[in-house]
Amino acid sequence: MVTVYGIKNCDTVKRARKALDAAGIDYRFHDFKTDGLESAKAQQWIDALGLDAVLNRRGTTWRRLDETSREGVTADNAAALLASQPSLVKRPVIEYPGGVRIGFARTDETTILAELRGAS
């Protein structure tokens, strides 16, 4: 089963969900705002893809963190921060049998959809 993690108001998440619906790919949506994020799940993503792939350093939530918090983030302690502030996760996170992807760039849509079809 494919699971899409994100925030329902996020434009990229909306676009990804619309593309999955149009492609007929069944998925479950996990909204960080209502369903939360467990630190163990965030750590799985960090372990699989690396902190830079998971942590959104371009968003408002990141800019609102104090400088000490921003400078102290490492792969070893980031999961707790992401669990407490899931808006810091790049979106969407797409988990599927055999893998996980973060983001839904327009240039990668065809590849992502093909990968998800193959995993279903």
Rank of each mutant, 00 (worst) to 15 (best):
M1D: 12
V2D: 06
V2Y: 10
T3L: 09
T3N: 09
T3V: 15
V4E: 00
I7K: 08
I7L: 12
I7C: 04
K8C: 06
N9D: 15
N9Q: 15
N9F: 14
D11Y: 13
D11G: 05
D11T: 10
T12P: 02
T12G: 06
V13C: 14
K14C: 08
K14P: 05
K14D: 04
R15A: 12
R15M: 07
R15E: 02
R15I: 05
A16W: 09
R17E: 01
R17A: 05
K18R: 15
A19Q: 09
L20T: 02
D21N: 15
D21C: 11
A22M: 13
G24D: 06
G24P: 06
I25H: 13
D26C: 05
D26I: 02
Y27Q: 05
Y27M: 02
F29M: 03
F29S: 07
H30F: 10
D31H: 11
D31S: 09
F32C: 00
T34S: 14
T34W: 05
G36M: 11
G36I: 08
G36F: 05
L37Q: 09
E38M: 10
S39R: 11
S39V: 03
S39L: 06
K41H: 14
Q43G: 01
Q43P: 00
W45V: 00
D47E: 11
D47N: 08
D47F: 03
L49Y: 08
D52M: 03
D52Q: 07
D52S: 03
V54L: 03
L55S: 00
L55E: 00
N56L: 04
R58C: 04
R58N: 13
R58A: 13
G59V: 04
G59I: 04
G59S: 09
T60L: 05
T61W: 12
W62P: 01
R63K: 15
R63Q: 14
L65I: 11
D66W: 15
D66Q: 12
E67K: 15
S69T: 15
E71A: 15
G72D: 11
G72H: 14
V73Q: 03
T74K: 02
T74I: 01
A75E: 01
A75T: 00
A75V: 00
N77T: 02
N77Y: 03
A78I: 01
A79L: 10
A79P: 01
A80H: 14
L81E: 01
L81A: 03
L81G: 01
L82D: 00
A83P: 03
A83S: 11
S84R: 15
Q85T: 12
Q85K: 15
V89E: 01
V89Y: 06
V89L: 10
R91S: 08
R91G: 06
P92A: 10
P92V: 04
V93T: 09
V93C: 06
V93K: 09
I94D: 00
E95G: 01
E95N: 07
Y96H: 13
P97Y: 11
G98E: 03
G98V: 06
R101M: 10
R101F: 12
R101W: 13
R101N: 07
G103H: 10
G103C: 09
A105D: 12
T107D: 13
D108L: 12
D108S: 13
E109V: 07
T111I: 08
T111C: 06
I112R: 12
L113T: 04
A114T: 10
A114F: 05
A114S: 12
E115F: 08
L116I: 04
L116D: 02
R117T: 03
G118I: 04
S120E: 14
